[in-house]
């Protein structure tokens, strides 16, 4: 077990383990830029750990030094002198020969909503308003069914029959249509937020959400207020998601 007492071996193991955990242990996979930042932190922490006292530092530097100076390790030295330059040279090649990738487009997917919007001359409060159709539980089925009809005649082309954003028109659109089955979309939004997004569409997005790219129409021109609330009910009903609500005091 003396192998594991060597600070050098420990350091290598910690770094390797951290990399494996970051690279394969996180779902969905973390982007390289994030992994790079975390690995830098791990590396610095390991340096602090091995240099905590003089003995520890010696134990860490020992193997490196012996590889560099020990006559018995000449072969290892020669191998390193060949392998390391080749590796770095190859890395340089991949960097120099890489075809450039499109610039990353940063885009706020769920931008902060306005306090209220003008809907066909009527002011609708976005922060805090509940779906008015939900008050009438008896008509829930009727409204959801009407919402389904509106959906299939207008929304299905992009958002798809399964409401998962894989409509027929989706492949040509960037940003892609929202996937309502994804717990990261309607499940974390309030119904009034959806009303704003549907009514004002892509052109109504704030700058940070790149309104010029979005193919989402502004549905206020085509759907009534009731139809929009119905579609919202259908979205939640058909996906089995629950809208986010204000907490009520009991």
């Amino acid at each position: 077990m003396s192998l594991f007492r060597s600070r050098f071996v420990q350091a290598v193991l910690i770094v390797a383990l951290a990399f494996v955990v970051l690279r394969f242990g996180i779902r969905p996979p973390a982007p390289w830029s994030v992994i790079k930042i975390y690995m830098t932190v791990v590396f610095l922490a390991v340096l602090i750990y091995v240099s905590a006292d003089a003995d520890s530092w010696r134990s860490f530097v020992g193997p490196i030094r012996s590889t560099l100076v020990d006559p018995s390790r000449r072969l290892v030295r020669a191998a390193l002198a060949i392998v390391l330059p080749i590796l770095l040279g190859y890395y340089a090649y991949t960097q120099a020969a890489a075809t450039p990738e499109a610039p990353a487009e940063l885009r706020a997917v769920h931008p902060a909503p306005p306090g209220s919007i003008q809907f066909r001359g009527k002011e609708i409060n976005i922060s805090g308003v509940e779906n008015p159709l939900r008050r009438d539980q008896a008509s829930f089925k009727k409204h959801a069914a009407a919402g389904g009809e509106t959906y299939i005649k207008n929304c299905v082309y992009c958002h798809g029959d399964n409401l998962d954003g894989h409509g027929q028109f989706a492949p040509a659109l960037s940003p892609p249509p929202a996937d309502f089955q994804d717990p990261g979309t309607i499940a974390m939004l309030q119904e009034a937020y959806l009303f704003w997004r549907i009514a004002k569409g892509g052109p109504g997005l704030p700058r940070e959400s790149t309104p010029w790219n979005s193919a989402m129409p502004a549905w206020e021109d085509r759907l009534t207020e009731e139809q929009i609330w119905q579609v919202i009910m259908y979205l939640y009903d058909a996906t089995g998601q629950q809208p986010r609500r204000w907490e009520t005091a009991h």
Binding site: L84, P85, G89, A92, A96
Partner: peptide, 12 residues
């Protein structure tokens, strides 16, 4: 892409 890698290797 043919010049940079050998330079990097030699520097290493």
């Amino acid at each position: 892409r043919f010049v940079v890698p050998p330079v990097v290797a030699v520097l290493t």
